[in-house]
């Protein structure tokens, strides 16, 4: 399937916006937002719960903006099949323990800040969103970095868990730097900056990034082509259940 299912009532796609690009960025934000929403009521402390919810809401706002560029945001979020989603596999990974969530946030928010930084500097259709979102994302990265430092340089147990999480999600990071059609950014060139930032934080946290040939870890994952991991289908089933049970209802 090359074209996403956008339903019958979709608005025409703006000629300056690549639907594929808007979906890729929008789906990243939507899916990660939903994952973070799953923490509601389950975070380690109340204050952290608010922080995670805050990040989720920022991402949902980004997703809404991006999906609206392509069509009806509700139809796109709730009526597409798994194979029509264009998010990277990193964001769909289950929350796991708190360290897994933080590792996912560290990898993704660092990437997103660099990407939106580039997009906001250009004059493309995503520049207005990126200019606003880059400030939000900088906070997300800051949050993830602080927790990486605390967990890595915390107790023996938290150190072990943070290292396990970094290792487990590493294979999902390569996909971030594959070119996205319609995104006028040299994605591969983001990788060096990303690696520098992440390495600095991880080392400061007394942790290590997985070594070995990057290309191996990096090519795993084809979320941008609509191929997703097993748990993503279950996530969508939960997310879309109500909308599919009552099609056409207004909320």
């Amino acid at each position: 399937m090359n074209r996403p299912h956008t339903g019958t009532a979709s608005a025409p796609v703006s000629p300056t916006v690549s639907a594929g690009a808007a979906l890729a960025l929008g789906d990243d934000a939507l899916v990660l937002s939903h994952r973070l929403g799953e923490w509601a009521g389950h975070a380690p402390v109340l204050e952290e719960e608010v922080a995670l919810a805050n990040i989720a809401l920022d991402l949902l706002g980004q997703a809404r903006f991006l999906l609206q560029l392509v069509g009806d945001e509700d139809e796109l979020a709730y009526l597409r099949e798994e194979r029509a989603f264009r998010n990277v596999q990193l964001v769909e990974q289950p929350n796991g323990d708190f360290a897994h969530t933080i590792a996912r946030q560290l990898y993704f928010s660092t990437y997103q800040e660099l990407l939106y930084g580039q997009l906001s500097a250009g004059d493309g259709p995503f520049a207005p969103l990126a200019a606003k979102a880059v400030k939000e994302v900088a906070y997300h990265r800051d949050h993830a970095e602080h927790w990486t430092l605390r967990l890595g340089d915390g107790t023996e147990e938290s150190h072990r868990r943070m290292q396990t999480a970094l290792n487990a999600l590493w294979r999902c990071t390569g996909e971030l730097f594959e070119p996205v059609e319609g995104v006028d950014v040299d994605m591969a060139a983001l990788r060096d900056g990303w690696l520098t930032l992440v390495t600095k934080t991880v080392q400061q946290a007394t942790l290590t990034l997985p070594t070995g040939p990057q290309a191996g870890a990096w090519t795993a994952g084809a979320g941008r082509q609509g191929l997703h991991t097993e748990s993503f289908g279950r996530m969508l089933a939960e997310m879309q259940h109500l909308h599919r049970s009552h099609p056409g209802a207004s909320w």
Partner: peptide, 10 residues
Amino acid sequence: EMALRNARDL
């Protein structure tokens, strides 16, 4: 540091 960040959110 964390207190500042939490205060910002809350």
